[in-house]
């Protein structure tokens, strides 16, 4: 039976942090049938010394840039620290079960931390939250909250 749910696979630490330690986020949400919406945060150091760095958040949909906004380092730092705080310390690496039905992928790094992984269509209806492991629920919460926090910046 083709049901939808969430199978999560993550490789915490599998992604190398950027060597400059600057924040970097790429969140790709598959829309349908090979199209995608991509949230990207890229940052550069502040050469004038007033901020630690400056970032630009962009949203691309189906290859078209549809929104962008600059972010201060304090905003960026806050949301990334929250993300890494929420990430479970230990996660069993689940089998990603092929590449079909990908919903969301993430590649995040900041300072010495990095995380990447993906959410795929799975058997959600048959695996209620109460039956999934706490660490997997926390992971899902962390990633969806990071995406929410970034998206909300584009409504300002």
């Amino acid at each position: 039976m083709k049901r939808l749910l969430l199978l999560i696979w993550i490789a915490v630490g599998g992604a190398a942090p950027a060597s400059d330690g600057l924040p970097r986020i790429v969140l790709t949400r598959s829309l349908d049938h090979g199209s995608a919406e991509i949230l990207t945060l890229r940052c550069v150091p502040d050469t004038h010394g007033k901020q630690e760095f400056f970032c630009e958040l962009t949203r691309h949909r189906n290859g078209v840039e549809v929104a962008s906004r600059g972010l201060y380092s304090v905003e960026t730092t806050s949301l990334l620290e929250k993300f890494f705080e929420r990430l479970p310390a230990s996660l069993s690496a689940d089998d990603p079960s092929g590449d079909a039905g990908e919903v969301l992928t993430w590649d995040v790094s900041f300072r010495d931390r990095a995380a990447q992984g993906r959410l795929v269509r799975g058997d959600v209806a048959g695996t209620p939250r109460t039956r999934r492991g706490a660490s997997r629920n926390n992971l899902l919460d962390a990633v969806l909250s990071l995406e929410g926090a970034l998206s909300s910046q584009l409504y300002r």
Binding site: M1, L4, L31, E37, R61, V103, L104, R121, V124, S152
Partner: peptide, 24 residues
């Protein structure tokens, strides 16, 4: 679970342009 599934599929703002069927 319904709320969680929608947010996972549609984003926290629910504004992703996704659609899917569960034929079973």
């Amino acid at each position: 679970d319904s709320v969680r599934r929608f947010i996972a599929n549609c984003g926290a703002d629910q504004m992703a342009a996704r659609a899917f069927a569960v034929p079973g």
